[in-house]
């Protein structure tokens, strides 16, 4: 099985200015490795600030101009630079963003979904937009609403409809379940599983380890801007003795219900 998306040793620095002329470099990512093959869901788990969202943005070539990146990103075995990846963004590879703030607050939802249908090359964008929302249980009345009139769960579904409009081969889902009730979490994750079973590749970025275990084929643990471990979901059981890396084990054991213990030295 060949990897659809492969990230090797990705590093990202930001050059920033403090007051005046003092310039400094913030090392945001210091070594990210990730491989996703067709038919796989890979969970990228880590705390907020560990660089998960940044990895997604870097892969899509969406970093701001003061970012410096090193390392390799391969799409379908082809080595691409940031500009090359940006050309694939929204087509072969899409981002399911984290928050409602990624929707334009002053345009009705319908127009925005229609726009992404247009960009994806649908012959009848209006119908495609309505159908995509209907598939997610949102009626035509939602098309006329503005983003602030949507509940959190509805906004996620709208974003999901927009992200999958072009039938992407690689979907990067950034914290798609935060703040959703458990039933919606299951539906959302089930949708990703189905996408992968249809031959897509899904990177599920989340900080909720437990929820990710149900659907993921592999769990990549990241911390402080680097990936520290790739674990098999089956290893996350009992007291986590099957987990090789100490940080992965500490994460598992610190979960409420697994002892809530704080291991020293990790």
């Amino acid at each position: 099985m060949t990897a659809l998306l492969e990230v090797r040793g990705l590093e990202v620095d930001f050059v920033q200015y403090e007051r005046g002329l003092r310039r400094r470099t913030v090392h945001a990512l210091t070594g990210m490795d990730l491989t996703v093959a067709a038919g796989e869901v890979v969970a990228l788990v880590g705390a907020s600030g560990a660089g998960k969202s940044l990895l997604a943005h870097a892969v899509l070539g969406l970093l701001p101009p003061n970012a410096v990146e090193r390392g390799e990103v391969l799409l379908d075995g082809e080595l691409l630079d940031a500009a090359g990846r940006r050309r694939h963004a929204g087509r072969g590879m899409t981002l399911l963003p984290q928050a409602v703030s990624f929707l334009d607050p002053v345009r009705p939802v319908g127009r925005q979904v229609r726009r992404s249908a247009e960009l994806a090359g649908h012959p009848a964008p209006r119908r495609a937009a309505a159908e995509a929302l209907a598939r997610r249980g949102l009626g035509p009345e939602v098309l006329r609403r503005h983003p602030h009139e949507l509940s959190g769960g509805m906004a996620r579904r709208v974003l999901g409809a927009m992200a999958t409009m072009s039938n992407p081969r690689v979907l990067l889902a950034d914290e798609p379940t935060t703040g959703l009730p458990p039933a919606d979490v299951r539906t959302t994750l089930g949708g990703f599983r189905a996408m992968a079973d249809d031959g897509g590749a899904v990177v599920l970025i989340t900080h909720e380890l437990r929820a990710a275990l149900d659907v993921a084929d592999r769990v990549v643990i990241c911390r402080d801007g680097r990936t520290v471990d790739v674990a098999d979901p089956a290893g996350f059981s009992g007291d986590g003795a099957a987990l090789a890396h100490p940080y992965t084990r500490a994460l598992w054991q610190a979960l409420p219900g697994n002892g809530f213990s704080v291991a020293e030295g990790v």
Partner: peptide
């Protein structure tokens, strides 16, 4: 984002902030 800090000596060449300041 990791809070690693390192102060870099700015160069005049290609430094937009310096040019702006000038």
């Amino acid at each position: 984002m990791t809070a690693v800090r390192e102060v870099v000596a700015p160069t005049w060449f290609g430094d937009r902030r310096r040019r702006t300041l000038a």
